[in-house]
Design a protein around this nucleic acid. Structure first.
Lengths: 214, 214, 214, 214
DNA sequence: CATGAATGAGGTTTCATTCAT
DNA sequence: AATGAATGAAACCTCATTCAT
């Protein structure tokens, strides 16, 4: 049995779970490094050598865990998406107040993550030639889970009369597009300016659901 | 001594203007092809061989007109941006009504062009992070000219009290981001659905300047 | 200090013979698997990973029994050759009749084994040109033992005037070459056709020693 | 239009036939070098680097003419087969005498070529994983053309009563197998011995069609 | 005994770039 | 103006081998 098995198959063999856990941890290390790099520079601009170097191993080692660049990047996207979504879910769990207050906080958090951790995340969804089927499914699911967070809040606000939208779908798409590209114009050096920029983005995007600034 | 001269230099020598015109035409052909390809697949995923093949010439020929891949792609972006901006300026010249009416028309037109002519233009703005200085300048200027169209209208509306914004800059950025990515979710087959989708985008984005739907 | 010891050494230590037997059995399993794979695809096209996978162990384990790929393949050839020769010797022990009758039976058996058990055994003799000295010796000996069976019969027939040959050596070489490649053109699906094909090969090869068909 | 076009397409564009001829010549140079190397060592054991080095160019250049290793080797086999067959046809054209005399000369020539030029030609027909369809056809045709030479003579001899065979097909297969493997046991250093060995092979193989030695 | 992990050398392939013609 | 040819660096990938556990 070849050792490559994507992250989810892990539970196949119950044997030697300590080893399995270690393997899992290593895979996560790799995926985190890969997610950062791909998130920063995009698919084509990152070589496996780059990934290996950041992990201080050789290229060959990556092939022990992944069957190739595409599998690696797919898994990395998944990781990135999961971490990102988890952070947002966490925030949402602890947040109270009106739908507007919570949505604004969510937007702020999302942009902050984008700017801080994954300035080129957008590119990861613009990967070359369409993905092989298996991988495309996984990415689509990921995106839906992420979207659901925003959609839930928006629908709540609309239901309560707090928000006004033309279409929930379109408002979400626009919001998402702007948030994703935000790192490109908020990527300033000084944290102070950056924070203000993020605030402005949040205020501006709230207008998409009919909440005026101030 | 190579005859390379970037697109601007073209008008420098009045001599032998028939030759010059022909050269200009050839350059335009190349740039159009390049813009399409780069727009479809992104910078890294398009090889000069691809561009040459679409033009039915050899790679070598491209070097007669451009000093390298980067210059080619920069010029392509410039061309595409110029055409695009020209279409928008034309529309604006003939348009009357309130700032809101004109802005809405401008947004509609922009998205329509994007969806119809340059479905993947977005990628052209996701080009390698570090441009050589010379090229970065040109792209920045282009963007500013394009932006000025929207900015003018928005400022006019703000001045007249018609619009409400947190920051003109941020509103424009968000608007731009959403418009650029719109082709990705409006790229439906049937023209009827597509038109309605574009309308929704326009309505939604008008909210960024405080204009409610309907 | 690694415990590697080539197959011959096995019987050296009488100590702990149960362990030794187990070791021997394991080695045989490995060699059988290896012989099949190398026979099917050739030396270069089979990786140790492939061999390990078929045995459901890891690559590393193979190094416990063999010092490397070359030793493994040499031993595999040896095993295969031994089994093959043993089968032929067995046949010869029980066979009677004229030299021609016995030679014909031997040829038939040889080709039958090749077709049935080792359809691509030929490739095992097309292994990298330069064997290390130690291994070359072993392979040569093997071949001689195998050859001796045929040689003995041929010489007997020549001595008795039953056979006519130009050179015993050359006749044997040609016979061997044809027998080895026979699986490639006798590898038909239906057993009936296959049996007739083998008969034809045997008849034809008998002509090499001057025995006419029928 | 990518420059790769296999040898037969050459006549597609009538344009600039001097250039075309030069291209053809270069391709032949490459194929000759490749055929020698692959013929000597087999598919897997020859790297493109090896081929490139013998031609004193870089690996990359090979990709200008061939789309990959497989295409190169297929074309090389074709070349090798064509040259080989051409030599045999030439010989046959100028040869007179009985079918036996001519067949014997043909065998001698074939083995001489094998020993002298392509000691590992056999391996080329045992290439890894079956060939892609396109290439398999070409190789099969080649083989048939080659076989036809021998078949014609054998059938002629059988018709005239000069030869006796069990089956023409089987006799040809055996003959071919032996001839192809002959370099393995005739590859001696001294030309004198080698010539005698070839003579013996020829005499021995003539027995396959019922011609006794001497 | 056996495994999982890692390595490093070497293979195939791609491609921007240069240049003689 | 354009082409065919060649290059070289760098990419992806494979695999025999080693080793701590």
């Amino acid at each position: 049995m070849s050792p490559q098995q994507t992250v989810e198959d892990q539970s196949a063999r119950p044997a030697s779970s300590r080893v399995q856990r270690k393997r899992g941890r290593r895979i996560q290390e790799i995926l985190t490094a890969a997610a950062e790099l791909f998130g920063e520079r995009g698919y084509d601009a990152v070589s496996l050598e780059d990934v290996a170097e950041r992990l201080d191993v050789t290229k060959g080692s990556l092939y022990y865990y992944f069957s190739g660049k595409e599998e690696l990047v797919t898994a990395a996207i998944e990781t990135l998406g999961n971490e990102w979504t988890a952070l947002l879910e966490e925030l949402l769990d602890g947040s109270t107040g009106t739908a507007a207050q919570r949505l604004r906080a969510l937007i702020r958090e999302h942009v902050t993550i984008a700017v801080r951790d994954y300035p080129a995340a957008l590119r990861l969804f613009l990967v070359p030639r369409q993905w092989p089927d298996a991988q495309r499914e996984r990415i689509k699911e990921l995106r839906q889970r992420h979207d659901a967070l925003f959609r839930g809040l928006v629908e709540e606000g609309v239901a309560s009369g707090e928000f006004t939208v033309t279409t929930v779908d379109t408002a979400l798409q626009c919001m998402h597009a702007a948030m994703t590209q935000a790192p490109m114009w908020c990527g300033e050096a000084k944290p102070r300016d950056r924070d203000r920029a993020i605030d402005e983005v949040a205020d501006t995007l709230m207008m998409l659901v009919g909440i005026p600034p101030r």
